[in-house]
Simulated scan of single mutants.
Amino acid sequence: MGLDLHCPITLLELLAQFNKGIWGSDEANTSPLKSSYTELTCQNHIEIDIEELTLTLKDTNIVIKKINNRSIVHELNHILKQLGKHYIFLTMGLTEKPYEIFVSVDEDSLQEPEPFGESSEPEVSSYYKFWGVYFESKEDAMIYDLENHKYIPADLDFYMTDED
């Protein structure tokens, strides 16, 4: 399942509300996404998962891809915390807001591909390594290294398959 949430606030407003506990948590200080997901799966007696979550804000889109089972449900609040921690770097020192943040860029896509049959299930920690960041002033996406707080040179190639 894909979710696209349209939020009539800016990235900075989202982070401010998240840090105050207004957005992203309820009275019990749990994630409303996690609570809603649990209720949905219980009522329907089927196992579903979120393949992609897009937060469409006034100034930025945040696209979060599934890494493994229920990774978005479990990690959304942690991802939002990381957005807050890296806001200065993601906005290039508050000089330019990205129009899209893609969480996460698979580290393997920055290296040589693994031989067939040797790939493994990505770990949730992959959410906190590399993000694709798109700016109006840049022709191509940039890759942000969360651990080192810097942008690294690399090509982000997204391939689309033809489905007939």
Rank of each mutant, 00 (worst) to 15 (best):
I143Y: 02
I72W: 01
D140V: 10
S31E: 05
V105N: 01
P98S: 09
E163Q: 12
L53E: 03
E121S: 06
H149E: 10
V133T: 07
E39M: 10
H78S: 14
L76I: 12
V103R: 02
S126F: 02
S109T: 14
L14W: 08
E118I: 07
D157W: 02
S120L: 10
I62D: 03
C42T: 14
L83H: 05
P113H: 06
S137Y: 04
I152H: 04
L80K: 08
P115S: 11
Y127H: 04
S35T: 15
L15A: 07
Q17V: 04
Q43R: 13
E121H: 02
L12T: 13
P32H: 07
D157S: 10
V105C: 08
F130Y: 15
E163M: 11
T56K: 09
V105D: 01
E27K: 11
P113N: 08
K129W: 00
P153N: 11
H74E: 12
S120W: 00
I64C: 03
N69M: 02
Y87P: 02
L94N: 14
N19W: 03
E123N: 09
D4N: 14
I72Y: 02
H6I: 13
L90P: 01
K129P: 02
E136Q: 11
P98W: 06
L156I: 15
G117T: 11
F18Q: 12
M1E: 04
Y159Q: 13
S36P: 03
T56G: 01
Y87I: 15
V105W: 00
E96R: 10
G21F: 05
K138P: 00
V124N: 04
